[in-house]
Every structure is written in C-alpha cells, then in structure tokens.
Design a protein around this nucleic acid. Sequence first.
DNA 1: TGATAGATCGGCT
DNA 2: GCCGATCTATCAG
Length: 217
Amino acid sequence: MKPQRTGQHEREDDPLSPLAASFYARPSPVVARDLLGRLLVEERGPGRVVGRIVESEAYEEGDPASHSFRGPTPRNSVMFGAPGRMYVYFTYGMHHCMNVVTGSDGEGSAVLLRAVEPLEGIDVMCGRRGVAARPLLCSGPGRLCQAYGVGRADNGHDLLDSASGLFIAAGDPLSREHAAAGPRVGVREAAERPWRFFEEGSVYVSRRSPGRRRPGR
DNA sequence: TGATAGATCGGCT
DNA sequence: GCCGATCTATCAG
C-alpha cells in the first residue's frame, strides 16, 4: 500500500527521485560507497521491484582488474561513455553483471552492483530467480541481474531517465559507521585497492560466510 | 559448514 | 585457445 505518485517524482526530497548526473560524475570509489543505501528500481515488468543497495565495487581506468584497463573495445565502450548509464556484460557463459558508469565522459570507470536488500516486488524476484529465500534473491552480481530481469539488451541504458523504468533513486544513504570496505571479489592483488563496499552485518551481501560470527559471540 | 569442481560462451590474445 | 568482476551442486569432515 503506497501513496500514488502523480508527477511529483522530480522532487529532490522524494526518496524515489532518480539520482542526477552529478552523482555519477565522480571517482568510482566515491560513487561506490555513496551508492550504499540507495534504491535500485525496476518497473518494466509485472510490478515494481525495489531493492536497497548493500554491496558495490569500484573499477577505475588503469586498474588491471577493470575491463577498461586495455582501452576501449566494442564490448566495454559504454564504460568509456557518459556517466549515469548502465554497463552490462555477460560472463562465465551464463551470468550477467550490471555496472553504473562513473567519472567523466571518455574515462573508463564504473561501479559493479553486487547485492541489494529486496524491499518491494519480492514475488516478482522469486519468479525470475526460481528461489524463495530472500537472502538468495539478490546477493551477487549474477543473481541481482536475474532478479531484476537485466540482460545484454540493457547495456548502455540511461539511468538518469526514471521514465525508462530502470533507475537508481536517492533512497536513504548509509551512514559511515555502517559501511565497510574490503578487497574486491575475484580480483588479484585485491588488497591494494579495497574498493568493495558493503553494509556491515547485512545478510543480503554476497560472500558473508567466511568468519561469520553469530550474535552473542 | 566449508571447500572444490563443473557448467558454458563471448571477448580478447 | 584461454580465461573470467559467477552460481550451484556435491563431497568431505
């Protein structure tokens, strides 16, 4: 049960208003951390799907782990384009990963969205994923794309346009004390650039098992 | 509960 | 030809 939004969604204080271009036009590690707590919204399918971003990773040009490291190619060209667009690629023969292009036009930097906490449209996500357990719906880049119905066709998608039905809304940014940083997943020499950002203690992030502590000890 | 291998294919060398 | 910003099933303990 939500109040109807009748053309008021451009208001700055509306948590469902899309983030502006200036938000993305900053260095990717800055954007990655600032994305925590924001809302990933999709309303192109059977119902509105909303999730709170709890995990992200930054990739910079000149970073050996980044697709943009060896310069522009047909595959990664979106990464070198204007900030605020989505870079979607296919990997491991079966998974998609979605990124948000950051920095300035011509620079190959982006932020990988790794996990969100499902808030709305749980049934839609379950249907797309084929699983029911909430922590398994969007905890990982491949799962996230599947839950949101995002694929190669969305490469280059404009996130600044909320009318497109897929965008990131302002939400409620995560406070500093609840945000943690660490080495990126699957990246060699990962410790040198601790550009994975996540919400401390969230059960909706990926890779939470090692060293997991239960409350009380 | 934690570690490991297999699936599967587009892009780059 | 090889490798990968992954996920899942399966096995061992």
